[in-house]
Every structure is written in structure tokens, then in C-alpha cells.
Design a protein around this nucleic acid. Structure first.
Length: 962
RNA sequence: GCGGCCUUGGCGGAGCUGGCGAGACGCGCCGGACUUAGGAUCCGGUGGGGGAAACCCCGUGAGGGUUCGAAUCCCUCAGGCCGCACCA
């Protein structure tokens, strides 16, 4: 790339000094970028506050368009051409919206806390703040060159104390609230306290609020708060030295970042009660304009399933509670399984095996306790990869205990097995081998009885012993289900009816109830990191937790000597985390006056996860410098509030990669809903329309050992690829430094200009599809801009070459069809076809030989969102004093969009036999008559019988002959 | 295994709710112009097969179906991509 000669050679500038060359593009681009910045061209006025603009008139009455990108991590690696794809797309759309009468809010902030920034800092030996800020500056520089029309006043950074004071403030809002199941919303915790104090709500355990100590009260409230600290089994990653959210752990039990092993460990951690919002997070997806695939992923992630809890009587008056989605098959439950970690296991294990236990149930152990211990040890030793491989082979061991099936009264053996997960439902199942394929496999392996209770509809018969697998189809009826005493029978009921019937029967007896279970877990919200937001929480000398008052925010990230995490051997599961902040005793131990005089406190030393800053940035974009509120209600209502087309409110467009389908997007929705419930925002959702842009991929070339070689240095001959004389293999892949195929936007801009780069990226294909980068093809976009330039400006004299003639009919038709098409494409984010239509019109003008001024002006305005610098330059040369950024986008005249005559095709049995020039408004009957009278048609029909004539005015007549 | 998506020229891709001649636009390739030269730029051509030509035949992963008419709708299969993964 950098070795090729720039397109602007000395020879051509001598004869054509005004040709649109890379050098000229560079000059134009930096000049306009400076001008935009100086004049604040992309400043979006707010209805009120610091960013209000009295000269902008009644802002609240003007239509708005809030366009967001998923903001970037300021990595030190530098950008490749894939990174700005989305930013260019939103910029094109934002510029289009601005030219169609919208007050456009478009900016870009930086998500700068978190692991990569910290790791980068540790690697380079610089403080995270220093390296992060340098990275931000570098990225701003690279992005500025692209001419993105951002409002720079709104470019927040999550590491700015003035930003994260509000992150901490929101944390406190969440901390100080609880979820009222009846009202289905979050409410201030004070209202719960009032209910407890007045007795209108009973305390758990029937205690009296007034008699509780501060610590006891806090324990109670901790069960309600939407943010709470609790000892929970968490994902501890010794290699990273931190705990991780479930969402940050891969399916094979490793950290998403760094790929270190992750272990389950009980630790006191901060949690967010996102599960309280499960149903609302599912329901409100209906109100959003999001890709169905993403909605589906969120629904699956939340994993709502309706079913029932059922109690099975266990030895010693204990009960084992299971969750099942198939209470209708309760009569078929012939054994039970507990997760190996289940707390009840040790309680029910008898001293000795019962009489006549089959040898394969005991695992060869002398006593149940030994069997259980051995199985647990084996399960723990198994790597997750082994677990996956073994998924089909069911393992487990008998506990020696029996429970009682509540509907059949039968004694059922209780097993432990790792196919039952502690983290889902109650960690215990009733096993119905005849109607669940996992239970079937286990029952086969352990020779357990099976009972068919759902009538097979596929002719396999009712004896499970003869089956290959469970019968788990729903659309059938229940059979074989009478209780011996005869007081419950489901026979003949449909699966659906049987579920309701048996659930009611259980509920009457107090041994079960209908319930809803979710896959979603509460969100682990603390990390043992330096580079994150500190919690605004302190502990008094009794260890009681206190929230800091708003006046003490922000709690700034303290300076420490050693900010690196305490990491361990990646496999040292017995290690435990040490928070970097705890090393700074001066910071940890403070004397504060929290309203009852100065006292000594210890600060919370965990930090928030990197998601925190991105959970609410849409709000801060709206009102970035507000120091008295997270966002002014008037500004929030204007930019984000619900409207007829946005029932839940939210930003009008949010563009980013699909990799954030569940994590970021679910967390941000959750925070936004809490803030809505507490009355801070009018919108219910943060992002109304979501658009996932595709990736830019690139060929990867590997040598014989499989190592990537620099793609830019690979040579091709007759379909064979080589690097430094050695043959290499080509494959499709992502673009990136490690694959040695990254192409830097700066290099493309150097060679052709930023407008060419923007145009090329937009013309590569549909925005939501991944497509391969092809540096050779960039020149096509460059040539288009050169032709456009040449249609307006003489390459030799620099004078305007547009003509002052009145455009002819055909040219006007070409123009207005282009306007009509491009407008539709722009509004629908179909920039690739918008570019094609602009090129088509430009090519038409080239062929025409001259460009009438009005056509040139309209074309320049149409191209402006895509290639803003050259458009501004041509606009100015065409004699306009103002930037075109706020000029009205061309509007098509319908009279020129519809042709005066349309070519109608006459088909005979689907083959074209004649063409007619007809008026667009012609009726079917007229058209049919015209077609049948046409000599060519008459000839083609010959003497054949006309069986049917299909007329679709004005474009087609199809004649079916017999 | 479950769920979702995709498959059009040498390549990236057009083709709106089934309605003409598929393949817009760009790259590449072929030919020409300008040039000491050009990988710069400009002009023309470019799905496959046949024909001197007008023109004809075949073509949207494979097979089948619905329809007057299918790249577009339905079924089966093949290949590819993504998500979840023993979720009871």
C-alpha cells in the first residue's frame, strides 16, 4: 500500500493542476474539517441548559434525530478500515437527516475503563489514565480525518470524573431502590422501610423492624435492594486475578478475555438484581425496532419458561423441590436427580446402602457417602471440554435415599448427576425417562424403570423398553396416570390441560405451584480491578454498609503505586482475589461525616465492571455538562422521550456490532428501566432502532507452517499466491493485526482522500452484511469522484464548466429518478445502492457532454452525506457561501419520476413477443385490447385459441394460448 | 443437539410487496485512445453455448412443487455463517 506511487503524479498536475487528486482531496478535506470545527457546524442545540442555542428558535418544536454508534474502546493498536465502517454509516445517515429538516444529535464518546486499557497500561508500564488518554487522542485524530460530523461538545469519556460521578450516582439510585412486584416497578428503598416500620408489610420471619439493629436492618434490605452485596458462587479467574460475570465466561469455562480457566468460588460480591426485570425486558422488546435475531437472542438469554415447582417428600421430613415444565408427566417420574453440589445431598445420604441395590448404582463404593464424595471429586476434576465430549454419556451415582412421587405415591431413588445444574431452577429434577431424552439416556445407563404417560402418536407403542429414545412430543394426550387411591387421574387430557389440572391439584395440597423460571441470573457487578469506577460505598466500624451522599461524588480513582491486578497461576483455584484499591490504606481508611458526626469508615475496594459506563451514556450525550442532574428532563424528553413512532422512546438509531446482542444491550436496557421507574427519565428504553453492521473481512495468507504472513506483500500469479518466493495459502478471515492483513484508514486516505474511503466503504455492500476488503477496488470510488469533479470544474483551468442551459426533459427524468431512489436508499440505510444511483446519474452527465447547473447542484447535494468534503467544495465553487450541511436535500418532482410512456411487454405463454409504449395510467382492459390488436401479437398467436389474458397495467400483458 | 440466517457472472454485489428482456453500480479482464512509458486517466466491450449477422438455446447452490408467470412463495437435500449449548 504505502509503496505504491500516490495517484497524484507530478506530470499530471503540470497539465491538469485542478484535477481531483489525492493532494487536492487532502487540501480540501483538512480545510473543511477546520471550518466545520470553527463554525460548530454539527452542534446540536438542546431545548434547555448549557447547550441551548437562543438563535436556533424553538428547538423542542423541531423534529429530532438522535443517532448513536456503539462507542469504542480506545485501544492502543490503531484503527483498521473495518473499525470506522459503522461510524461512517451513521455519519452519512446523520448528514442526510440534517438535510431533511432534523435537529441531529450525533457524537462519539469513549468507553475507556476496563481490562484491555489496564492490560495495555501494564504492558507498556504507563499509568492507565495516561495511556488511555493518549489512545483517545490518537483515535480522535484518526477519526477526525474521516470528516465525521460529530458534535464535539458531547464527546464524553467514561473515565472523566465528571462522567463517572453520574455512573456512581446511578449506582446509588439502583442501590437505594427495590422492585415492587405488585406495581411491577422499582421504588425508592425508603418506601419499603416505611412499609416495614408501619407494619403494612411483614418482615421475613415475622420480626419487628423497630427492634432490629442497623446491621440487621441492612441484612433485610439487602434481600430487596436492586444492587446488593452477597456471598455468592462466582466465576473466579486466577489468571486474570478477577471475578467475571457469567456472560464473560465462555461455554468451555474460560475467560472470554485472555482465555484463562475459570473456577466457581464463593465470594462476597456486588450483584445487580436484573432478574427482577426479566419479564419487562422480554415484553418491551415488542416496542423496539430491532433485528428479530437480536430480540430472539435476548429472549433466549433471559430464558423464560413456565412450569411448576413440585415438592417430593424425602427422608427425615425433608422435601426435595424440583422445577419442571412438564408437570403433566409427573406420573412418569420414576427417579430424581440432584446436582452434585446440591445442599440436601449430604442430609439425605444414609449410612449404608439399602438392601438389593444394583451394583451399577453405587459406583463401586462401600457406602453412599463414599460414592457421593467420589463422584463429586471426579466431576470437579473433569475439564469442561471433557464434560462436553461426555455430554451424551450420562454419569451419576445413587445417594442411597428414596423420595416419594407426590401423585403416584411411589418411592423413587434419588441420584446425583452432573447433567443437572445447580445454577438452573432448584438444582434438582424429577426424572421422566419416557418423555425426556436426557432422562431416557440416564435411565438406560442405570437400568431405571420407565413409565409411559403420554400416548405416543407415532405408532411406537406404550412400552418404553422397546423405544430408542424418549417420546417428548407435546400434541398428545395423557394416559396411564391414575393414582392408586383413585383421586387424581389425568387420562385423556391434553398435555396443556393436564399441566393446569395437576398444578391445581398440587397447589390445593400445598405441595406445589405454578411458577415461572428464568435462565437469567443476577448480574455480578464487582471486579477486582484498578481501572474502573470505585463504588460510592463505605463500611463503618461495625461493618455496616453506608451509601455515600451525592455531595461526596465522585469517588475518584485514587493514585496508587501498583495498579496491576494480583494474578495467580491460571490453575490455582484455591487462590482468592485481592483488590488493587485495598493496597492504598490512606484511601481506604477515611473519616467522614455522614450526618451523625465525623466517624471512621473503610471504603469499598471493588470496582465496577467495564459495562457500567456504557449502560447509560445515551443519557449523557443528551446533556453532557449538566452538573445538577444526570440529564435535564426537558432535554431527555426531547431527544429520547416516547413518541407515536417510538412507543418506548430511546435513541432513534443505534449502530454497532452484533457481538453486543445480549450483554451491553441487556444491561443498558435494565439501567434505563430503573431510571425510568424512579422518575429520572421519560423513556422506557435506551435504543429504539438497532442496526447491526457487518464486519469487514480480509484474506489471510498463511505459510506452510500455518503462520500468517503480511497480506500486503503477497504476490499472485495465475491463481497461486506466494510471499518472499514461498508458496502461501489464502483463506477468508477477520481483519486484524494478528493476522497481518490490517489495512489502515490513514493509508487509504493518503492515497485517495477520505471521501473516497467513505464512499468505498459505503458502496461495498449492504451495511448489515460482512464483506471482504479489496484495496484494488477502492479506485472505483476515486474515479467516480474525479468524474463528478470534472463535470463541475475544469481540470486545466479550475473554472466552472457547468452550463447555464435549461435541462432537457430526459436529463430531468434521470435527475429526479435518482433523487427519488437515493432518498429511499438513504432513509433505509441502503447506502450501497444510493452510491450506485449517484454514479449512474453522474455517468449520464458524462455521456451527455455537459452538466446544466441545476443538475450539478442537486447531484452535489445528494452526494454530500457520502462524500461531504468534495461536496462542500463544489457547492462553494458553484457560488454558495454557506456550508451545505443544513441545506435542504433535493426533493424529487413526481412528474419526472413517472415516465410519460411505459414500455409494456406482451408475452405469449411467458415469452416476450411484443413491446408497446403506453401511458402509465392505462387500464387493464385498454391495455389488453391494445395488446390483442398489435400486429406482432396477432402474428404470434397465429390461429391458436386464446385461453386467458392476464393484464397488469401498465407493464405487462401475458396471453395464454391453447 | 436446538434455534436463527445465508447460497445470483472471475470477484463484491443490484433486482421494491412474484410481473418484461436477470446481472444496476464497482473491481477484474479484453480491446482502443493519450503517452518515452504507464500499474495514471479517458473511451468501448465483458454470464455460458451456438451463429457472419438479425437472432436462438441455457442460466440465480441441487432436486421437486404452487402459478399464466418464481432469484423472489412452499417442500426435500447439500454447502456455509452465527447464537445457545445436558436450562429440566
Amino acid at each position: 500500500m504505502s509503496e505504491t506511487t500516490p495517484a497524484s503524479g507530478a506530470a499530471e498536475t503540470a497539465t491538469e493542476p485542478f484535477r481531483y487528486s489525492a493532494a487536492l482531496a487532502a487540501e480540501i478535506e483538512s480545510r473543511w474539517q477546520d471550518l466545520w470545527e470553527k463554525e460548530g457546524t454539527f452542534h446540536a442545540p438542546n431545548p434547555t441548559g448549557a447547550l441551548a442555542d437562543p438563535s436556533a428558535g424553538d428547538v423542542a418544536a423541531k423534529p429530532h434525530s438522535f443517532i448513536m454508534d456503539m462507542f469504542p474502546y480506545p485501544s492502543g493498536a490503531g484503527l483498521h478500515v473495518g473499525h470506522p465502517l459503522g461510524y461512517i454509516a451513521t455519519d452519512v445517515f446523520a448528514r442526510y437527516q440534517r438535510m431533511t429538516g432534523h435537529n441531529v444529535l450525533h457524537t462519539l464518546g469513549y468507553d475507556a475503563f476496563g481490562l484491555p486499557a489496564e492490560q495495555y497500561a501494564v504492558q507498556t508500564g504507563t499509568h492507565p489514565r495516561v495511556s488511555t488518554e493518549a489512545n483517545i487522542a490518537n483515535m480522535r485524530q484518526q477519526l477526525r480525518r474521516l470528516g465525521l460530523g460529530h458534535d464535539p461538545r458531547r464527546s464524553i469519556s467514561t473515565i472523566d470524573p465528571e462522567y463517572y460521578r453520574w455512573t456512581q450516582w446511578i449506582f446509588l439510585q439502583i442501590f437505594d431502590s427495590w422492585y415492587d412486584e405488585t406495581a411491577r416497578k422499582a421504588r425508592p428503598i425508603a418506601e419499603l422501610v416505611a412499609q416495614f416500620a408501619s407494619g403494612s408489610r411483614e418482615l421475613p420471619g415475622g420480626r419487628d423492624w423497630a427492634s432490629l439493629s442497623g446491621a440487621e436492618r441492612e441484612d433485610v434490605l439487602g434481600e430487596y435492594r436492586l444492587a446488593y452485596a452477597k456471598e455468592v458462587p462466582v466465576n473466579w479467574c486466577p489468571g486474570l486475578g478477577t471475578v467475571l460475570a457469567n456472560e464473560e465466561v465462555t461455554a468451555d469455562g474460560r475467560s472470554e478475555r485472555g482465555n484463562f480457566p475459570v473456577f466457581k468460588s464463593n465470594l462476597r460480591q456486588w450483584m445487580m438484581r436484573i432478574t427482577a426485570y426479566s419479564d419487562r425486558l422480554i415484553e418491551d422488546l415488542e416496542l423496539l425496532d430491532w433485528p428479530e435475531a437480536i430480540k430472539l437472542q435476548q429472549r433466549n438469554w433471559i430464558g423464560r419458561s413456565e412450569g411448576a415447582r413440585v415438592d417430593f417428600a424425602a427422608p427425615g421430613d425433608r422435601k426435595i423441590t424440583v422445577f419442571t415444565t412438564r408437570p403433566d408427566t409427573l406420573f412418569g417420574a420414576t427417579y430424581m436427580v440432584l446436582a452434585p453440589e446440591h445442599g440436601l445431598v449430604d442430609e439425605i445420604v444414609p449410612a449404608a446402602w439399602p438392601e438389593g441395590v444394583p451394583a451399577e448404582w453405587t459406583g463401586g463404593a462401600d457406602t453412599p457417602a463414599e460414592a457421593v464424595a467420589a463422584y463429586r471429586a471426579a466431576a470437579a476434576a473433569k475439564s469442561d471440554v471433557e464434560r462436553q465430549v461426555d455430554a451424551k454419556v450420562k454419569t451419576g451415582v445413587f445417594t442411597g435415599a428414596y423420595a416419594v412421587n407426590p401423585v403416584s405415591g411411589a418411592a423413587v431413588p434419588v441420584f446425583i448427576a452432573d447433567y443437572v445444574l445447580m445454577g438452573y431452577g432448584t438444582g434438582a429434577i424429577m426424572a421422566v425417562p419416557a418423555h425426556d431424552h436426557r432422562d431416557f439416556a440416564f435411565a438406560r445407563a442405570f437400568a431405571l424403570p420407565m413409565r409411559c404417560v403420554v400416548e405416543p402418536t407415532d405408532g411406537r407403542g406404550e412400552d418404553p423398553a422397546a423405544w430408542d429414545d424418549a417420546f417428548d412430543t407435546y400434541d398428545s394426550v395423557i394416559v396411564n396416570s391414575a393414582r392408586s387411591e383413585g383421586d387424581l387421574s389425568l387420562d385423556g387430557l391434553s398435555v396443556v390441560d393436564a399441566k393446569a389440572h395437576v398444578t391445581a391439584w398440587l397447589a390445593e395440597r400445598g405441595i406445589g405451584e405454578g411458577t415461572v423460571n428464568y435462565r437469567l441470573r443476577d448480574w455480578l457487578f464487582s471486579r477486582q480491578r484498578y481501572w474502573g469506577e470505585p463504588f460510592p460505598i463505605v463500611y463503618d466500624e461495625d461493618g455496616v454498609m453506608h451509601a455515600l451522599p451525592e455531595s461526596m461524588l465522585p469517588v475518584e480513582v485514587p493514585e496508587v503505586d501498583d495498579y496491576s491486578p494480583r494474578t495467580y497461576d491460571a490453575y490455582d483455584s484455591a487462590s482468592s482475589p485481592e483488590t488493587p484499591l485495598s493496597r492504598n490504606e490512606d484511601w481506604v481508611n477515611v473519616e467522614l461525616d455522614l450526618g451523625d458526626g465525623p466517624k471512621k469508615y473503610r471504603r469499598e475496594t471493588n470496582t465496577m465492571p467495564n459495562w457500567a459506563g456504557s449502560c447509560w451514556y445515551e443519557l449523557r450525550y443528551v446533556d453532557p455538562s449538566n452538573s445538577s442532574a444526570v440529564v435535564d428532563p426537558a432535554n431527555e424528553k426531547y431527544w429520547l422521550g416516547p413518541t407515536e413512532t417510538k412507543p418506548a422512546g430511546g435513541a432513534d438509531l443505534y449502530v454497532g456490532g452484533a457481538e453486543h446482542a445480549v450483554l451491553h444491550l441487556l444491561y443498558a436496557r435494565f439501567w434505563h428501566k430503573v431510571l425510568h421507574d424512579l422518575g429520572h427519565v421519560s423513556s422506557v428504553e435506551p435504543f429504539h432502532k438497532l442496526f447491526n453492521q457487518g464486519m469487514i473481512t480480509a484474506d489471510v495468507y498463511r505459510d506452510e507452517r500455518g503462520f500468517p504472513v503480511p497480506a500486503a506483500e503477497v504476490e499472485e500469479r495465475d491463481g497461486q499466491y506466494s510471499w518472499q518466493g514461498e508458496p502461501v495459502k489464502r483463506e477468508a478471515g477477520k481483519m486484524g493485526k494478528s493476522l497481518k492483513n490490517a489495512v489502515a484508514p490513514d493509508d487509504i486516505a493518503d492515497e485517495y482522500g477520505a471521501d473516497t474511503l467513505r464512499l468505498y466503504e459505503m458502496s461495498m455492500g449492504p451495511l448489515d452484511v460482512s464483506r471482504p476488503w479489496d484495496t484494488r477496488a477502492v479506485v472505483g470510488s476515486y474515479r467516480f469522484l474525479q468524474r463528478l469533479w470534472r463535470n463541475v470544474v475544469s481540470e486545466t483551468t479550475g473554472e466552472l464548466v457547468v452550463t447555464e442551459e435549461t435541462p432537457d426533459e430526459a436529463t430531468l427524468r434521470a435527475l429526479h429518478k435518482a433523487i427519488d431512489g437515493i432518498r429511499g436508499d438513504m432513509a433505509g440505510l441502503r447506502f450501497n445502492t444510493a452510491v450506485a444511483k449517484a454514479i449512474e446519474l453522474n455517468n449520464y452527465l458524462v455521456k451527455r457532454g455537459s452538466t446544466p447547473r441545476p443538475v450539478a447542484e442537486q447531484l452535489v447535494l445528494m452526494v454530500a452525506p457520502l462524500a461531504p468534503h468534495i461536496a462542500e467544495e463544489l457547492w462553494r465553487r458553484l457560488g454558495h457561501g454557506e456550508s451545505l450541511a443544513h441545506t435542504d436535500y433535493p426533493v424529487a418532482d413526481p412528474a419526472y419520476v413517472v415516465d410519460e410512456t411505459v414500455t409494456c411487454v406482451v408475452q405469449i405463454k411467458g415469452k416476450v413477443k411484443a413491446r408497446l409504449e403506453v401511458a402509465p395510467g392505462i387500464s387493464d382492459a385498454e391495455l389488453e385490447a391494445l395488446a390483442l390488436a398489435d400486429p406482432a401479437v396477432v402474428a404470434a398467436i397465429g390461429g391458436a385459441e386464446v385461453r386467458k389474458v392476464i393484464a397488469r397495467a401498465p407493464k405487462l400483458v401475458n396471453i395464454v394460448t391453447g
